[in-house]
Nucleic acid binder design. Structure first.
Lengths: 192, 192
DNA sequence: ATTTATCTATCTACTGATAGGTAGATAGAT
DNA sequence: ATCTATCTACCTATCAGTAGATAGATAAAT
């Protein structure tokens, strides 16, 4: 699946930055053209110039987010050990949580997937497919195919859920605890 | 923590039913007084009669939801085995997912906790505290105190996250898979 | 008489979206 | 070098629709 990365003007990127921050706090409905505009110092019509419809904006935010995460994770099939890759995955999630005190973008949007415009929901789905596939491939060196796939969805789900707990309870030890537990279990599985 | 259960009129309960269904799809912003009113056959002013502010409505929906789940789970310290209790916990989550194709209410609201009115966020926090405490107590018979607490947050987080995956990917096998994996790991831990 | 549950009517604020205009930069033709 | 056309990135002004919320009337039940 080739994913050509769109290039945005500096102002469009500014808009995407603010939109992402807002969406990570309150979901798709938490952004409005007026708020975004005033946050970046233009009028709402100018935001429409860069992103004609709200759906376009939502799609762009999610796509850019996914590409950023993918770039941070690197190739799941390179020479690193499965444990090293898993540690990196956890680090990426921790960074997402501590970044502006906000939860993973797709954690918020995933929960309200059925409420989103179909195009935006499709981008969110692609994010989760990408993440679970990456994790499955990262574990492929040490586990059977089906075991790696099962572990992958468990790991991604657990990390997402731990973020919800951390944000809802206002205590990011939940994410750290889950990461510790996950590492322990995966090490056990790899030893089998 | 004593929690006196509020009694609502039939119409108020109807409103709460519709509000819960909408919120489980799209979060707190997904409900509007007009929509709720027309869904139950009254005018929006009448909804304000039952729930003066939107915050009151949100609090009531979450509180009622929590009380229902607590009732379904029963006493975490009764004679059942930890495994039996965990199975019930998974069943409750599966029911929530299949119920109207919607995700756990607090999964949606938890993700946007920082965006919610403080009173509503507090109810969501109480839900998660209740759930993790229940799970911790349910495991207390077979695990050390700290191990039970760590396992509890991992389990609740993993179940929440699996629901997000199931909804976002449109495939509820993810929840089933996570439940299987969780059971396997807890059994291993109990055997230690 | 008071309470309960509804109504009509209305308010202000905000939503996404569009039409139409403008200043400045760029590119090609003369 | 200059004229022309196009493009970029914004603007003002406005629209219809919806948001939460309130005042005040009504009718029935206690």
């Amino acid at each position: 699946m080739r994913m050509e990365q769109k290039i945005y003007s500096p102002k469009a990127n500014e808009i995407l930055d603010v939109a992402e921050a807002h969406m990570r706090m309150g979901g798709f409905d938490a952004i409005s053209f007026r708020d975004l505009a005033s946050a970046v110092g233009v009028k709402s019509a100018s935001v429409h110039y860069h992103f004609p419809q709200k759906t376009d904006l939502g799609k762009a935010v999610v796509a850019r987010y996914r590409e950023r995460v993918v770039a941070a994770l690197g190739d799941p099939q390179d020479a690193r050990t499965p444990i090293a890759k898993l540690k990196l995955l956890c680090a990426v999630y921790s960074a997402a949580l501590s970044d502006g005190d906000s939860v993973c973008l797709c954690c918020v949007l995933g929960a309200e997937a059925r409420y989103l415009p179909p195009d935006v929901a499709a981008e969110v789905r692609l994010f989760f497919e990408t993440m679970t596939n990456w994790t499955r491939d990262a574990l492929a060196a040490g586990l059977s195919k089906t075991k790696a796939a099962d572990a992958a969805t468990h790991i991604i789900g657990a990390l997402q859920g731990a973020m919800v707990l951390s944000v809802a309870l206002g205590d990011d030890n939940h994410l750290k605890n889950t990461q510790k537990t996950l590492m322990r279990f995966v090490k056990k599985d790899l030893a089998d």
